[in-house]
Amino acid sequence: MPLKHAAERPDSGHFPFYRLLGRDFLFPFALLLVLDMLVMVPLVRAHHLPLGIGIALVILPKLVGVPWAGARVLRIAELHYRRHGADGIKTALLGALLAAVLVLLVSTVESIQTMIFTRSEQENVWTAPSLKYRFGYERETGRYTISGEIDFGITRDFRAFLEQNPGGRTLILNSPGGSIYEGRGLLRIVSDNGLDTHVEAECLSACVLAFLGGGRRTLAPDAGLGFHQYAVDYSKLKQTIPFYDPKREQAHDIALMRGIGVSEDFLERMFQQPHEGIWMPPHDVLAGAGIIRTGP
Rank of each mutant, 00 (worst) to 15 (best):
G153T: 06
L104E: 04
G142E: 14
L173G: 14
R23V: 14
I180Q: 01
G178P: 11
C207Q: 00
S111W: 02
G22N: 06
L256R: 06
A46H: 03
L74N: 12
L60E: 10
D36Q: 12
L105I: 10
V66S: 10
V232N: 11
S12P: 02
T218R: 06
Y230T: 07
Y18E: 09
V73T: 15
F243M: 12
Q229A: 15
F243S: 11
L171I: 15
D192W: 09
L20T: 06
N174E: 11
A100I: 07
P67C: 15
D36R: 08
M115G: 14
E264G: 13
G167F: 01
V101I: 15
G168A: 07
L225P: 03
A251R: 09
T141Y: 04
R248M: 08
Q122W: 03
F152K: 06
R143N: 03
S263W: 04
I260E: 00
L57F: 13
G194Y: 10
L219D: 09
D233L: 09
I154C: 03
Y18H: 02
P61R: 15
W126V: 14
R159V: 10
F161L: 13
K247R: 07
Y230D: 10
Q250W: 06
V190Y: 04
D284H: 11
A220K: 00
G226A: 11
Y81C: 13
P28T: 06
V66D: 01
Q122A: 13
P42S: 05
L98D: 07
R159L: 08
L195G: 10
D36H: 05
E140I: 04
M1C: 11
M270K: 02
F158R: 11
L79G: 14
L49F: 08
R139L: 07
V190P: 00
S120P: 01
Q164K: 12
S191E: 10
T141K: 04
A6H: 08
V208A: 03
M115R: 06
W126E: 07
Q164W: 12
F211W: 09
T197C: 07
L63T: 15
S263L: 08
V199C: 09
R82C: 14
T127Q: 06
P282D: 15
D87I: 13
G13V: 12
V34W: 04
T127C: 00
A7D: 08
G295C: 09
T197H: 00
A210V: 11
G148I: 00
E121P: 03
F135S: 10
L79K: 01
